[in-house]
Design a protein around this nucleic acid. Structure first.
Length: 702
DNA sequence: CAATAGAGCGCT
DNA sequence: AAAGCGCTCTATTG
């Protein structure tokens, strides 16, 4: 097949050609590495094909594909006696052609990957981390252009239930190729499992992957500046190598403690399980909410507890709204619902069970994996867990984190939560440096307004919740006499309520939600909100201004974050005629959808929240780029004593630092997060408090 | 049997 | 009428 590279001589000639261009793209096809189930894990997988494209050139480099072109025996499925699942017994092909070894290939490609050319890939971190293994564990230098991220910059709503023009359903390469070029080339899902396919099919597939990625790169390079998205793209472009480095580095964990916690929680659950069955009078599946409904809410004559539920689950609320009669299936069994029945022996023990079961399955079992089940591989490699920090993972500009998600590790406030968070631990001789922006969303809001109560408070060094408490509860005199007034135990409830109120403003919560959160009546909550409006009128004026601005973009209502990122929300439009009805396969356009008050209101909340949440996303991404730059320079000067950035949790960064360098590391972190470039973006003083220097992540909030 | 929806719950 | 996520489990559907 044309373009397939078999020899070093061929490859060297290609590298010469590529080096004369200003950009290229590449794509990796991989199989399981040494450990089963690692094909999708870029730190562990094995690269079998590499394809590269640039102007007028596409090449494909096989390096260990196991199959020739001729099928000798078809594949079939058989039962795996250990996991009791159906496994593939793979097809057998004749021998493949002689291919280069990965070490040969990457030695020749190194000048290209380490050049200053633009290196593009669709979902670049996967490819970049995959090849890092073959490049001495180094992340290639920028510019790295991730075409998936480029598409997201242009349309953050792909994959969302959203108004606006028709759009592709997903952002993956196959969907975009079909959307933009009307081409479908992967009928047999070759990429899912390349070792099942003949040599020539994979060669074609790999070539088309990089060829179309190249087309996307060229298209997006042209179109991103057209929408004045160049500045935010430059930030995102700089973020990609940082994400790659963090993914490669991973977060260190206490493996022994994870195993012990598994045993501990399992023992705990076994005991609770028998207490559940005793209290219920029978055995059932505790993980099943339907069975819980039956046992809790059916009358005692039918073997239930006869509890009278009041809280509805989501579909229950929908039915009630539509006037459809409710059944037992519509009542919630979540924590809030069960809290209504605290004191009931079954309920008490069920609450205990769910908390522990959640932590064990999500944070312990998932990390350890299931022996022999390649769908559930152990996620710990050399004592580290490598999350996939997804740069394009949200509509607002934040990161998301997956496989596993390290942005939802339990709080250390509860004992069990602390045990779980404490699993993330600096190795011997190292410390974790943990810093988070204090009340950053409110600072951003205050800065954008530029005056008023929040602004004045921050300027005076008063924290936002205290300031809100003073103003909504009219305690100005007391506070003037005693700056610690709100910190007195008997007054803390005011600050705590004010904190809820501040969240309510940022999220757009109503009185009912505020009441439920604080634990007061709806009337009292409404009073608080009214007081807030009187005390902080500028917040509401600002909100109205933002909404008018968004709506003034009549075809596509949007706001821009502090660094110019767009969030488009068509639902804020009041006039349905202004909406181009989406015609997606999974989206039934509703003619009057946008005229529904609740839909407009949700849109308004999204617009307002995106302004601050998205701006914080911008800022932490900028801080990470700054941090990474300093760390890279530092690494050259301090070989073997490197400081590493390992986690980013929305407003928090975590570094791993040799213990004799914590002062340096802390200073670097401080400068990266609130140094001049960052502070200049925000009119009120920024604050990251005291950087925590800890052994375990759980100790950071103490 | 595999894929999907819903509930529920962890986080900022 | 609380913004933004991802994961696990069960039950249902094709």
């Amino acid at each position: 097949m044309d373009g397939v590279i078999y020899t070093p001589e061929q490859l060297k000639r290609e590298v010469e050609y590529f080096l004369k261009q200003d950009a290229f793209v590449f794509d990796v096809e991989s199989m399981d590495g040494v450990i089963p189930g690692t094909r999708g894990i870029p730190t562990q997988n094995q690269i079998v094909w590499l394809s590269l494209s640039t102007y007028g050139r596409n090449i494909i480099i096989p390096m260990g594909h196991p199959n020739g072109n001729n099928l000798l025996r078809k594949g079939f499925r058989k039962k795996n006696p250990e996991t009791k699942k159906m496994d593939w017994n793979p097809a057998v092909y004749d021998a493949p052609p002689k291919q280069m070894r990965p070490s040969e290939v990457f030695a020749i490609l190194e000048p290209l990957f380490f050049s200053d050319l633009i290196k593009g890939a669709h979902n670049a971190p996967f490819d970049v981390i995959s090849i890092a293994k073959y490049l001495g564990g180094r992340i290639i230098p920028g510019p790295i252009f991730c075409t998936l991220t480029m598409q997201w910059i242009k349309d953050e709503n792909i994959g969302q239930f959203s108004g606006g023009p028709r759009r592709p359903v997903k952002k993956d390469l196959k969907t975009l190729t079909s959307w933009y070029y009307g081409v479908k080339y992967d009928h047999n899902e070759v990429g899912k499992c390349i070792e099942l396919h003949p040599f020539k099919d994979v060669a074609r597939y790999a070539l088309l992957d990089s060829a179309y990625t190249w087309l996307l790169l060229r298209k997006f390079r042209r179109s991103i500046p057209e929408e004045a998205l160049q500045a935010i793209w430059e930030l995102e472009q700089a973020v990609t190598p940082v994400v790659c480095r963090m993914g490669l580095v991973g977060a260190p964990v206490d493996v022994q403690a994870i195993r012990e916690l598994d045993v501990y929680l399992t023992d705990l659950l076994v005991g609770i399980e028998t207490r559940v069955y005793q209290a219920a009078g029978k055995q059932f599946n505790i993980g099943s909410w339907q069975q819980k409904q039956d046992i809790l809410y059916k009358p005692k004559t039918e073997g239930g507890q006869g509890l009278k539920p009041t809280r509805l689950n989501k579909s229950g609320k929908l039915k009630k709204q539509k006037g459809i009669p409710l059944s037992i299936r519509d009542y919630s069994t979540d924590k809030d619902a069960l809290d209504d029945f605290v004191g009931n022996p079954l309920v008490d023990v069920l609450l205990e069970y769910s908390e522990i079961d959640k932590l064990r399955s999500t944070y312990v079992r998932a990390y350890l994996g299931v022996e022999g089940d390649s769908d559930k591989p152990c996620l710990i490699f050399n004592g580290r867990i490598h999350t996939d920090l997804v740069q394009y993972g949200t509509v607002t500009g934040r990161f998301s984190s997956r496989a596993p998600n390290l942005q939802n590790i339990p709080n250390p406030e509860s004992e069990l939560g602390s045990k779980v968070r404490g699993l993330f631990r600096a190795p011997e001789g190292y410390r974790l440096l943990v810093a988070d922006y204090a009340q950053m969303e409110l600072r951003i809001l205050a800065s954008m307004i530029g005056y008023g109560g929040l602004y004045d408070g921050f300027m005076a060094g008063i924290d936002a919740h205290t300031q809100t408490a003073v103003l909504v509860y009219n305690k100005q005199e007391e506070f003037a006499k005693d700056p610690d007034y709100m910190k007195h135990p008997e007054n803390m409830w005011m600050r705590s309520a004010a904190k809820t109120l501040n969240f309510a403003i940022v999220y757009g919560a109503g009185a009912a939600k505020v009441a439920a959160t604080i634990g007061i009546s709806v009337e009292e909550a409404q009073q608080l909100l009214d007081n807030h409006k009187v005390a902080f009128p500028e917040v509401y004026e600002f909100r109205d201004k933002i909404m008018a601005l968004a709506r003034s973009r009549r075809k596509s209502p949007y706001i821009r974050t502090i660094l110019g990122r767009k969030r488009r929300v068509w639902e804020v439009l009041r006039n349905v005629a202004e909406i181009e009805a989406p015609k997606l396969p999974w989206y039934e356009p509703q003619k009057h959808q946008a005229a529904v008050r609740s839909v407009i209101s949700r849109g308004e909340r999204q617009v307002f929240n995106s302004l601050v949440q998205g701006s914080l996303g911008d800022i932490i991404k900028l801080a990470m780029v700054r941090m990474d730059k300093v760390l890279s320079e530092d690494a050259v000067k301090n070989p073997g004593r490197e400081i590493q950035m390992i986690l980013s949790v929305h407003d928090e960064l975590v570094l791993l630092c040799p213990e004799d360098r914590v002062a340096e590391g802390s200073a670097m972190l401080l400068e990266a997060m609130i140094g001049k470039e960052i502070q200049d973006l925000i009119k009120v003083p920024l604050d990251i408090g005291k950087i925590a220097v800890v052994q375990r992540w759980s100790q950071a909030k103490e």
